[in-house]
Design a protein around this nucleic acid. Structure first.
Lengths: 132, 132
DNA sequence: CCTTGACCTTCCCATGATGGGAAGCCCTAT
DNA sequence: ATAGGGCTTCCCATCATGGGAAGGTCAAGG
């Protein structure tokens, strides 16, 4: 299996597969005589795992930890759960921050006429009026 | 006023002030004979505007548009409102995506024992079981 | 007058994850 | 033999931000 085939099979682009190899997230692939990387079902499975974790928003560094646990038969599920919940907390934090931004902007936009006149509470807020 | 003082007065770091100047978001500051950048209240006000917009999650490119409208006395508030609501939509989209991630992970974590045994539905999900 | 320390200047580098693209090699089918 | 598609490595760009080096400037204090 070439890198392009592994990419299609896993949903991870060839570019990213090379990158993951470079940063040591995955072991270096075997090579053909011509220098082509070679992949098998085992590697595709690993790439799918990574792809799924990325889809759930895990950083590459977090995935490094997850892979360590995945491949450790002596792992404690508590460790996996801890990583997952830490990531959830991270996500919730970012969600809260963004909701605050969106809420503020919606409030401001609601009080903006939105017509051809220049007066605009949104710009007033940005330019400092009403905030100290 | 030096760049450091303007930074403290506006909440924008000196590094960022130079960067904003370099990309043309703000006009090039005046200089002293020794080459030091010089700022006044007008510039600090501009920097505060940018800072506030960044705090609301606007990208630098969006701020470029906002500044254009801010400085345009003939502006239509409808244009400002449109920019703001487009940004809200963007935020809401990202919020939704992250909530889906967080929700999925919370569900998985809830069914994970979280003890010293290796069995873990989180890893099962990541490794492909139960998704096709 | 000279030193010290804080501040300024420019320039380069790094982040995180990803894509784009060039130059050149390899393989397969026509 | 040639064309086309896929592989290789290498460099560059993103977005907004910070770190740090090398060197100039300025004010205060000895």
């Amino acid at each position: 299996m070439t890198i392009g085939e592994a990419a299609r099979a896993s949903g991870v682009s060839a570019k990213m597969i090379r990158y993951y190899e470079e940063i040591g997230l995955i072991p270096a692939a075997g090579r053909t005589g011509a220098g082509y990387r070679v992949y098998g079902p085992r590697e595709v499975h690993l790439l799918r795992f990574i792809r799924r974790a990325r889809d759930l928003g895990f950083s590459v560094e977090a995935i490094r930890d997850l892979l360590g646990l995945w491949q450790d038969r002596e792992r404690h599920s508590a460790d996996v759960k801890r990583l997952a919940l830490a990531h959830v907390a991270e996500l919730r934090g970012r969600i809260r921050a963004m909701e605050e931004m969106a809420g503020t902007l919606e409030t401001l936009a609601a009080s903006c006429h939105g017509d051809d006149r220049p007066d605009c509470p949104i710009l007033d807020d940005l330019s400092g009026r009403g905030r100290g």
